[in-house]
Computed example of a mutant assay.
Amino acid sequence: MTRPALRSILWLGFFGAILASWWWLYAMAMQMDLDLIGRPGPMGEAMRRMDPRMDMYMPMAEFWPLFAMWAVMMAAMMLPTMVPTLRAYEDLMISANGTRIGWLGVLAGYSIAWLAFAALITTVQLGLLFSGVIDMLGIATSPLVAGGLLIAVGAFQFTRAKEICHGVCHSPMSFFLTRWRTGARGGLWMGLRLGAFCVGCCWGFMALGFVGGMMSLLWMGLATVFMVLEKLPQIGHFVIKPMGFALIFGGIAVIASPIVMGG
Rank of each mutant, 00 (worst) to 15 (best):
G102A: 08
W22C: 09
L104K: 02
I101D: 02
A119E: 12
L222P: 04
L104R: 07
T122D: 05
V124R: 05
V145G: 01
M220T: 00
P40M: 03
R39A: 14
C165V: 11
K241Q: 11
M173A: 11
G167I: 11
I37Q: 04
S131K: 09
V83F: 15
W189A: 14
A68K: 06
P80K: 07
I101S: 05
A75N: 06
G132C: 01
W203H: 14
M261T: 11
L144H: 07
G244W: 06
W11A: 06
L104N: 02
R160E: 14
M220W: 02
W70D: 11
T159F: 10
W219P: 01
L218Q: 04
V239W: 06
L247H: 12
I18G: 04
L115S: 07
T81M: 11
M220I: 02
M93D: 06
V83S: 15
A118R: 08
A155C: 13
G204T: 12
M220L: 12
W189P: 05
F158D: 14
G16R: 11
A46H: 08
R100K: 03
P52V: 08
F130V: 02
A223V: 03
D51K: 09
T2C: 01
F158G: 13
I139V: 15
G213E: 02
A253H: 12
G148P: 14
A75L: 15
Q157I: 00
G263A: 01
F158P: 09
G127N: 09
E45C: 01
S8Q: 15
V239R: 04
P143L: 12
P242G: 08
D33S: 10
P143D: 11
Y26A: 04
M1K: 07
R181E: 14
F249N: 09
G167E: 00
F197I: 07
G138E: 00
G262C: 05
L218G: 01
V225G: 04
A68S: 06
G251N: 09
G186E: 00
E62A: 03
R39P: 03
G191R: 10
F67A: 13
P40Y: 00
F245C: 02
Q234E: 10
A27T: 08
L194T: 13
D135Q: 02
I101P: 01
W189R: 13
F176G: 06
Y89E: 09
L150V: 05
T123M: 13
V228Y: 10
A29L: 01
M261S: 10
G147F: 06
K162G: 05
A223M: 10
I121E: 07
A113F: 11
